[in-house]
Design a protein around this nucleic acid. Structure first.
Lengths: 204, 204, 204, 204
DNA sequence: CCATAACCGAGACGGTACGTCGCGTCTTGAT
DNA sequence: ATCAAGACGCGACGTACCGTCTCGGTTATGG
């Protein structure tokens, strides 16, 4: 759980309708005003409750947002079709789609930036979002190796990073758009490489 | 210039010693307390001036930080040694080094996250930081193409993103460290690709 | 109470040590810098608290000063010795003495001037300062009437004003000093009048 | 003159239309927003000029107000009809009338309060407003003495203060209205006194 | 008669203080 | 005994205003 205070046992039980109302209010407000302008006060008012009720459940704005998004947005696993590059493209494609929503484009970067200041939040975030998605793509890579499509000494972690990072990079800096074909381009470049036979002969 | 108001003509000229004192104070405080805890008030006090003096020069915290960093940190261009992959590795290496400082690791992610909320800030940032560095690496790629090391139909923009993004990705999520050899790994993966000859024959 | 918001019922109770610390700081600063230069910010710093804490308790500088002075300075009642003019002189004398302090001479005039801009403040001031003092002098006048010293159709309100106003007038305009004998002169003039028997015969 | 800088001799002469425009703007704004909310900036804008133009002519807000009022409001002298108490009543009456205007009721008290902080301003004010009016009433008192209406050992200064101060007192504290008959009441009280023959025999 | 020098009007600046927003905490009453 | 909620203490923000400095333009005087 994310609740800072352990719900020990006795006494008045927590009103769970508040939990869901707050999560809904948080997502609503994120869509309306963004992350930087999200105030706990506004969330409490929108959810029809009070600030301390929020604070008892979440340590702060970041934790609330992580929890609210996790309960709302889902993760799409990388498929297993027998075609290595198709699976990878499909897996990265879902990342691209996640960045078409306002929350993806504007909230996620800010949230991620906050991870650096709070290791506990970072751990929560990684376990809830990052690693699940990453694990399914890692499976696809391992299948590719077994299938003989990918080199057996492939550094899977490195590849996972290279596959996903470009999309994120473009969203963050905004210097180039995240096009529909980007996933395909990235996957094929990583698989095929860009060097000419001339270079390959000279250096490998 | 970053000054929000153009210094048209008449009136009292701006005291430029304040500009430099504030920039220095900003960098100092970024190193001490980080970006999230950076206060305009504290910067003003540290610089021996006042809040309105800052506000006249910079639109907000973000703009001040961009300007202060630009005036302090420099950009290391990608070298030109005649060896394509050596140059690329060296170019990416400087990015890795930039993330070894506290400012690189903790300030830059937060700053970049703020770009999404302010297009004007994003433009300033890109023109001051991003594009200059990127341009020198783009040159290295073009030389590689001319030299016959890289495929002539290489998508340069895509490659530039793929080269730099992995480092940034690891810094942001912190799931894996940014090692010294990362630049080399990334460059060689992109050049050589990870697919086996078996895959290449089947699909290309 | 002077507190703008009624302390209805629930919620965190107010820290009363802040109240007294602020009042003490206010009186100190009034003695040091006067009324015009009295800053809420400086009061907060001196009292070791913050501006919003002050603002929750008092609507503004004026209200704070009224409250701080009322809690510090006391009112000396007009005595009852059986001698009408002696009592009146003694009563007015305390007013003279109040104007020997720096707060009396420099703070009160400015404070009183502010009453015109804020009816609520004026009411508070009158109830706390003005009327209590005035009531005791009114008693002395009524005793003088009963005793047969003063004309039974005396306009008490008018006399109260005439007794006190001269001292105030001299303090305000500073054209003449407030001497020790002033109270006696005023009282005796009002009692005896300045007209000659010649005038009295002609007009009354 | 009120001009802080002596208009020595050569150079560009001062634009006197600005003087009168500023004075008019000052009076206008005093009527609109009062004294406390009067800002030099607003005056400058209203007068179609700039702040330094004002500052060159007047040392501050107070001096500007004193000058603007002096150039606008006039002083009505105490008449000389041969009737002592009639003249005195008429003289005080003009004071009453002065306090029926908004400027009289709201601006004058605040302005007078500022006199305590600036001796030079106080002198200017006394010479322009206070003493001229006072002198004409003093003449009336001297005529009353010569005429045999007033006691020859009358303290003229004391009487002048007692005559005028009550009106001012009521305006300042607002505890009682300044009625039309107030002047008459004050004058007759001072002339006749309020003591009974019983008291007079016992103590004088 | 013109050049010079002084002064004027105006804009922008540096800084103090204000009033406000939001966070995180504490205390009371109700469940 | 624990929860929900209101109020509080405080850090920081963004703004208004003051008093000052500098600039370009205008005007009287001296050569």
């Amino acid at each position: 759980m994310v609740t800072p205070v352990a719900n020990t046992r006795s006494g008045r039980p927590r009103d769970e309708r508040i939990d869901s109302a707050v999560r809904a209010a948080t997502v609503d407000l994120l869509n309306e005003v963004g992350y930087a302008a999200l105030t706990l006060e506004a969330v409490a008012v929108r959810a029809g409750t009070s600030k301390p009720a929020l604070r008892r459940r979440w340590r702060g704005r970041q934790h609330l947002v992580v929890d609210a998004l996790a309960a709302t947005v889902g993760t799409s696993p990388t498929p297993d079709t027998g075609c290595t590059h198709c699976d990878l493209i499909a897996g990265i494609q879902t990342l691209t789609e996640a960045f078409t929503t306002k929350i993806g484009r504007r909230v996620l970067p800010a949230l991620v930036a906050d991870l650096a200041d709070d290791p506990e939040l970072a751990e929560t975030f990684l376990n809830r979002y990052f690693h699940p998605r990453r694990a399914t793509t890692a499976e696809a890579l391992r299948r590719g190796i077994e299938r003989g499509d990918l080199s057996p000494d492939t550094d899977i972690d490195l590849l996972l990073d290279m596959l996903a990072s470009t999309t994120y990079y473009r969203v963050l800096f905004g210097h180039l758009p995240v096009t529909e074909g980007l996933a395909k381009q990235v996957v094929e470049t990583i698989l095929a490489g860009v060097a000419t036979p001339h270079w390959r002969n000279h250096h490998h």
